[in-house]
Design a protein around this nucleic acid. Structure first.
Length: 829
RNA sequence: GGGCGAUUAGCUCAGUUGGCUAGAGCACCUGUCUUACAAACAGGGGGUCGCAGGUUCGAGUCCUGCAUCGCCCA
């Protein structure tokens, strides 16, 4: 409407765990890459057919209890079926909501272009030295069995218990022969590789440099000082395990401690011979081996119970002073880290992953964050705080199936072992590529898995690795039809505040690493719709609402009206009355349009003072609404428009004109009235068009479409706009629809004065208990000099609207808060 | 523990750089079938602006502290 050629693409983020989980639950299957493909499944062309085939392989009831393993290829096909269904539902909803999306610009993060550009991103990062693969302790979800990134982890307040456990000091000559540590995770005792306390803590100063012996497993571990140990917490001395948390990782690294990985990728205790592969104090080897053996295969919680039992056995003491467990466990609540989509706590496992180097670029990332205009401003703080608190590089590899493959292979040595240092990256011409299906450059397929041959990376990218490229995907970065120079950086990223640390952050990071630029100039951060008690909506709490039933009940315009009331960055309490108000606005627009377009009369210009004064106010409304929209303050624009529509246009201007539009004796005044009404309606429809597009376009279609040759209000020029921008073609503003062509009134206060006068007359009629349409035989207004002067040019309209033959004046209003007061005499019947 | 936001009428919310008697819609009360609209219109009542200090001629607005709620992070 303002003449700009705007791109508004639609992208579907269909990679990732939620899709996989839905497929697993919906079909009763699980992905097993070792499993052969099922030919029948390849024939399936949709959900129903697929279910029938699966039912013939294994009944549904049994599959739900014990999921059917299927090949990766088959699994991915099912993922596509599910995402297609979901996307269809959203597409239908967005159509009904009237979003002006360029549907020809639709893309999905799993489609060929997105995969190609995501892999191109990896190639570029690799070329620039920003990626590396390494075997490191990483946050791991034991249910999904994948690495997760810092951004995907959240703290949850959980019940736990401090267990006080006695350790022995190895040195027989030490002053202190034993000490007690306090831990919430006794099951990690077998992974204990050190003990630490604060360097200034007098209780433990003498121990530093000596060794401790753990109970139950009789492991010899160093005692070292650390500033990070809190003397106030627990007993002030604690065990370091591989790995309980991020601090353990740091202690392990800084002190070159041993690695005792006790947990397997599925969250169970690994088979390992304590006292054989891992040391145990002399004479205790068998005991250590037997104790650990009883834990093998147990889940974390089971292992915890078993270790606590063993800690109650004095035979397992390292000091021969009775049971190592001191007293009863003390219940506490404490924050526990979870993968945001997970049901069991995060564990720190050592595994090989791919990383994007970000920790060394915090300053640059802050600079780019400052170069983006955040709306509202304070949202920038969220970004800055997150960037400041980064403590790990971005782990981008995921041990999942439905995602963009990492385009990498590894050469195998003569023993068939991967040489990770010499990894092979795909070449540009291969993209998109699935390395498990295509041989590495320079190799042939028959060398796959053979000594001296190659082996494919099976991991896929984190879903954010692709969705952080949405500007580049839309701009087709690096493709033959590249549009980067026109579309990058983009103008606006609209998104909610919960994904500043992920979507916004990673998108800024990628734009910086690839282009040393910002991805967009503005970030408009919306709040959430919260339930009437201001609680976050969630499916599991049962307080969530979905838009479609509301669209069906109240109409798309009412739903849009409601959402347009939300201020950027502010949560909005769900309030159904707002839909009703939106519905009333739609009805009112319909009725006002019907009335205005039914007024006929001689053709003519807007010459009357009242009409020009009304248009002058309307110009101001246009100016304020336009300014607000320029600042992304759409709620303000709507409110300014709506206020004037009700109190300026329908309740007053239309009412004041009803006399003149029917006055056969004043052709010029009548023509001016009809023209003023129609221009007013035309402008109001265009101002409302972004908010209530359906009714605005409906009313436009009745007369204006044909009259102007502009078939839709959404193609009509924005009131007061400069016309076509940047080479776009726009229809000119048709005669009678151009607000700027109307001359200024003689007195800018005319319309306001008429409005106040009519209010005074209404008040008098209301207080007299008579109908507002009741004709008057006399109408006397009290007004001061200024009031009389402001009214002088519009008296005829005021008298007609009041139902009086004429207006006479009295002295100024004494007291009160109005300029005008009316004395009325109803006409005798 | 750190950061951010919010707290204004019964409800949902505006209130721009400090400045007339703090506003809107809904709800409530009263009136009106009025030639676009009764899913309407008109009139009216209703607030110690979370609390306590401070700055100022003047504070819903600025400063300090506190309380409550929410979000983000540790």
């Amino acid at each position: 409407m303002t003449g700009w050629n705007v791109i508004y693409p639609m992208g579907w983020d269909d990679n990732g765990l939620p899709t996989e989980r839905r497929v697993q639950n919906f079909f009763g299957v699980r992905c097993d890459p070792e499993h052969p493909t099922e030919p029948a499944l390849a024939e399936a062309n949709g959900i129903n057919k697929t279910r029938a085939i699966l039912d013939s392989l294994k009944p549904h009831k049994e599959r739900i209890k014990d999921p059917l393993p299927i090949a990766r290829e088959d699994f991915i096909r099912l993922c596509h079926f599910v995402t297609e269904e979901d996307e269809k539902a959203y597409r239908d909803l967005f159509y009904r909501m009237g979003y002006s999306i360029d549907w020809s610009e639709e893309y999905a993060t799993i489609d060929d272009r997105s995969r190609r550009i995501a892999q191109r991103s990896f190639l570029d990062l690799n070329r620039k030295g920003h990626v590396y693969t390494s075997e490191l302790p990483t946050m791991w979800d034991v249910d999904f069995q994948t690495a997760v990134a810092q951004a995907e982890v959240e703290d949850r307040e959980k019940n736990g218990a401090y267990h006080d456990i006695e350790f022995a000091v190895e040195d027989p000559n030490a002053d202190v022969k034993s000490f007690v540590i306090s831990t919430t995770r006794p099951e990690l005792l077998a992974a204990c590789v050190g003990v630490t306390a604060h360097p200034d803590d007098p209780r433990f100063k003498g121990l530093f440099g000596k060794y401790a012996i753990t109970p139950v497993f009789f492991s010899r571990v160093p005692i070292f000082p650390s500033d990070k140990a809190d003397p106030e917490k627990g007993t002030g001395i604690l065990m370091v395990c591989t790995f309980g948390d991020q601090t353990d990782v740091e202690w392990w690294r800084e002190n070159s401690l041993q690695l005792k990985a006790v947990l397997d990728k599925d969250g169970r205790i690994r088979p390992m011979e304590y006292g054989v592969e891992w040391d145990a104090a002399k004479g205790h080897e068998d005991r250590a081996k037997e104790n650990f053996g009883s834990l093998v295969g147990l889940r974390v919680n089971q292992a915890k119970r078993r270790v606590v039992e063993m800690l109650q056995d004095s035979e397992n003491s390292a000091t021969s002073k009775g049971a190592p467990l001191q007293g009863e466990p003390k219940p506490i609540t404490h924050p526990v880290r979870y993968y945001e989509k997970g049901d069991n706590p995060i564990e720190y496992l050592t595994s090989r992953q791919w990383f994007v180097r970000l920790l060394d670029k915090k300053d640059q990332l802050q600079g780019k964050g400052e170069a983006v205009r955040w709306r509202p401003d304070f949202m920038h703080k969220r970004y800055a705080n997150w960037t400041d608190g980064l403590n790990a590089d971005w782990a981008v590899s995921r041990q999942r199936y439905f995602g963009v493959p990492i385009p990498v292979w590894y050469p195998l040595n003569e023993h068939g072992e991967r040489d990770y240092g010499k990894y092979i990256v795909a070449t540009e011409d291969m993209l998109p590529v699935d390395p498990t299906a295509t041989p590495a450059p320079g190799y042939t397929e028959d060398q796959r898995g053979k000594p001296g041959g190659f082996d494919a990376e099976v991991d896929v990218f984190d879903t954010w690795f692709t969705s952080s490229l949405t500007p580049q995907i839309v701009a087709r970065w690096g493709d033959a039809d590249d549009r980067m120079s026109q579309l990058f950086p983009m103008d606006l990223r609209p998104q909610a505040h919960d994904i500043i640390r992920t979507w916004a952050f990673y998108t800024i990071a990628k734009a910086m690493l690839h282009h040393d630029d910002v991805p967009w100039h503005n970030a408009a951060i919306s709040g959430f719709i919260v339930d009437p008690d201001r609680k976050k909506m969630s499916k599991s709490k049962g307080n969530a609402i979905t838009p479609l039933p509301l669209v069906e009940q109240y109409g798309a315009d009412a739903v849009r009206y409601w959402s347009a009331n939300g201020r950027l960055g502010m949560d909005m309490a769900y309030d159904e009355t707002v839909f009703k108000i939106g519905g009333k606005l739609v009805t009112k627009l319909y009725n006002a349009g019907k009335f205005v377009l039914s007024q006929t009369g001689p053709q003519g210009d807007i010459t009357h003072e009242l009409d020009r004064a009304f248009i002058a106010e309307l110009k101001d409304v246009v100016r304020r609404a336009t300014t607000a929209l320029d600042e992304y303050e759409f709620a303000v624009a709507l409110q300014v428009t709506e206020d004037f529509f009700w109190s300026g246009f329908t309740d007053n201007y239309i009412e004041l004109l009803k006399g003149r539009t029917r006055n056969d004796d004043d052709a010029e005044g009548r023509a001016s009235a009809v023209a003023g009404l129609r221009l007013g309606l035309s402008v109001m429809l265009r101002l409302f068009a972004p908010f209530v597009p359906t009714i605005a376009d409906e009313v436009w279609s009745w007369v204006f479409a044909e009259e102007t040759g502009v078939p839709s209000v959404h193609l009509a020029p924005w009131p007061g706009s400069a016309g076509a921008q940047g080479g776009m073609s726009m229809p000119g503003v048709p005669a009678g629809h151009d607000i700027s062509a109307v001359p200024a009134p003689q007195n800018p206060g005319s319309f306001a004065a008429a409005r106040e006068a009519i209010a005074a007359i209404r008040k008098a009629k209301s207080e007299a208990g008579i109908s507002l349409g009741k004709p008057l035989s006399s109408l006397v207004l009290s007004a001061d000099e200024k009031g009389r002067s402001d009214l002088s040019l519009v008296l005829g309209d005021v008298a007609a609207a009041g139902g009086a033959p004429s207006v006479s004046f009295n002295g100024a209003v004494t007291g009160g808060d109005t300029r005008f007061e009316a004395e009325i005499t109803p006409l005798e019947e």
